[in-house]
């Protein structure tokens, strides 16, 4: 059932040329060089410290590693991080 729904969504987004983050409930992560990270469509902030920020999304977690990380702005589904970015890792469930 879930798998069938997922396949339908992927097909619709491809067929109608819709942005995949809207259709698939995936986070959109934009980085500006290695100084800013802009995360949209997340579902929660799990952990945050100077070196590591972990964010929950529908199907897993995103781990952002870096140095001197700080949250510049935090809204319901948006997050703007700043600092020295090293890596973005996806940890699907």
């Amino acid at each position: 059932m879930s798998k069938w729904q997922q396949q339908l969504r992927t097909w619709i987004s491809r067929y109608f040329d819709l942005p995949s983050d809207v259709m698939l409930d995936l986070p959109r992560i934009t980085t500006i060089g290695s100084i800013h990270v802009y995360i949209e469509n997340h579902t929660g902030l799990l952990h945050f410290s100077d070196e590591e920020v972990r964010i929950q999304y529908k199907k897993g977690q995103v781990r952002i590693l870096g140095k001197d990380l700080g949250v510049k702005m935090m809204l319901k589904e948006e997050l703007l991080l700043e600092g020295e970015l090293k890596s973005v890792e996806f940890l699907p469930e």
């Binding site: 929660g44 902030l45 799990l46 952990h47 945050f48 410290s49 100077d50 700080g70 949250v71 510049k72 702005m73 935090m74 809204l75 319901k76």
Partner: peptide, 22 residues
């Protein structure tokens, strides 16, 4: 983190957050 998450869910806007300690 859960506290902040709950706050933002209710419409708060958090800016310039820095962790000083665990």
């Amino acid at each position: 983190e859960p506290f902040l998450q709950a706050c933002t869910k209710r419409g708060c806007q958090i800016t310039n957050m820095r962790r000083l300690d665990a």
